[in-house]
């Protein structure tokens, strides 16, 4: 059971500092251009916090997904920008 970071990530470091398991790391450029979550270490914060901390502080929608590929912060959920507007500006995409 582990969360994952998608290519929407902007490398702002916010999640790194709040992860209780030190599970978030900056890989080699070849592996990914953004932070990744170590599946071995991630507990989705069970037992530590009510909400997974990376998803609770992440400012970017669609950047954190669960094992099913579902967005923890779906489009519009953080900014409040309506879906139609996101589509109009090319900022909307469906979960994997």
């Amino acid at each position: 059971m582990a969360l994952q970071i998608t290519e929407s990530c902007v490398n702002c470091w916010a999640c790194v500092d709040v992860c209780p398991n030190d599970a978030i790391y900056q890989p080699d450029r070849d592996e990914a251009p953004h932070f990744l979550i170590s599946a071995d270490k991630c507990t989705e914060c069970l037992g530590d916090h009510a909400d997974p901390q990376c998803a609770a502080i992440c400012p970017i929608e669609m950047a954190i997904v669960n094992e099913l590929g579902e967005f923890l912060n779906p489009p519009g959920s953080l900014t409040g920008i309506p879906i139609e507007k996101l589509k109009e500006f090319g900022l909307w995409r469906e979960a994997a």
Partner: peptide, 14 residues
């Protein structure tokens, strides 16, 4: 200092 702890409607963290 890249991380932030709030969202402002005039800011886009991208």
């Amino acid at each position: 200092a890249p991380a932030c702890n709030i969202q402002c409607n005039y800011c886009n963290r991208k």
